[in-house]
Write a protein that binds this DNA or RNA. Structure first.
Lengths: 191, 191
DNA sequence: GTACATTTGGAACAAAATCGTCGAATAAAG
DNA sequence: CTTTATTCGACGATTTTGTTCCAAATGTAC
């Protein structure tokens, strides 16, 4: 099982999925983009959905790396949280196969995406909670329940993703809106 | 035959074609986007290709209007020619169903597109020739054969479209390149 | 070299998608 | 009401697509 070939396929699939979405992308498309025969894909993946999941997982890893970098670059907890939200939203719209995956039945697709995302929810909560805890230590935030607050913020953010999935709105508009909400969180949290 | 419904379909089809290209777009996609039943499309169009042709024709008309506007706004013949080239290239990449129509067999698609475009070639030659003639009258250009020169410029421009069709390059890069060539034309033409 | 595991792709096939047609339903017009 | 324009659901024929199977090719260790 060459990790090289597998990665190659994942990256090729990422490009094609992003262009055409999940439904319209055929295994032939992926194979052609990866420079392999169609049946070779089945040596590395069980089916189309598994390829898609691998792509999403790969992009999620990239996203995490990017977020970590931005977080490290910020000094205050407030800025860390802000960077986190901004990057996450931007990514979700731009490079997101998650977003372009919608084609036919919206609810079915959304459930499909949600299932994949759920694996990362815990991770995200942990990350946000970490930032909040740091903010509490630094006296930037009130001593709230970090996990509970993190859950709330994340849920709120997911709420903002839904209109991004349905209507192809501008990122800016949504970022502006969500920043307002984040501000609300801050003014309720900050000492 | 409601011109309204037909136009509605054409515009919806334009959006879908632009997103997915000719091959990946189904009649269902178009119908859904236009808010009609699939079979209703066949009341207005013979088949998928005819819908596509109507879309391209529609966009061509828009392009012509845009070009005419820009040409009228320019004073010198040199600037008119430059505006013309810039708009044409930009359009070709951005809103061009012509460009996104490529999916599988490149040559077949190209032939398909070429066939449609040929109807407009004469028109374009005439337009360029008009600009050149004006330039000659105003002593901006040498008294060259306007039609022949127009043919040359157009052919040259089509040559620049090919890499735009194959590789998804930036517009800027191509515009820069073609502007260089246009400059070459100028320095060979200008008095 | 042989023996073995890894990797690839051609052929085949069932299931799904898709195009375009037909006829009936509905709306508009006269 | 009669006629005409328009829409849509259902259907058959054909093509596409997802997936499997198997043999060929390639690499690897002895």
């Amino acid at each position: 099982m060459s990790a090289n070939s597998k990665q190659q396929i994942i990256e090729a699939a990422g490009i094609v999925f992003e262009r055409y979405g999940f439904k319209k992308t055929t295994m032939d498309d992926i194979a052609y983009a990866a420079g392999k025969g169609k049946s070779s894909l089945y040596y590395y993946f069980k089916n189309k959905e598994e390829v898609f999941e691998a792509v999403v997982a790969h992009e999620a890893r990239q996203l995490v790396a990017e977020i970590n970098k931005a977080i490290d670059a910020s000094n205050s907890a407030v800025n860390k949280l802000r960077s986190y939200v901004n990057i996450r939203m931007k990514r979700f719209v731009q490079r997101g196969n998650l977003a372009t995956a919608l084609n036919d039945n919206f609810l079915a697709t959304f459930a499909f995406i949600e299932k994949i995302q759920n694996n990362y929810r815990d991770f995200e909560v942990e990350m946000i909670a970490g930032i909040i805890n740091e903010g509490i230590e630094k006296r930037e935030f009130k001593p709230v329940d970090a996990n509970f607050t993190a859950e709330a913020i994340l849920t709120c953010m997911i709420g903002f993703e839904v209109p991004l999935l349905t209507k192809t709105k501008t990122t800016e508009e949504s970022v502006k809106k969500i920043n307002n909400v984040i501000d609300m969180f801050f003014y309720g949290i900050c000492t």
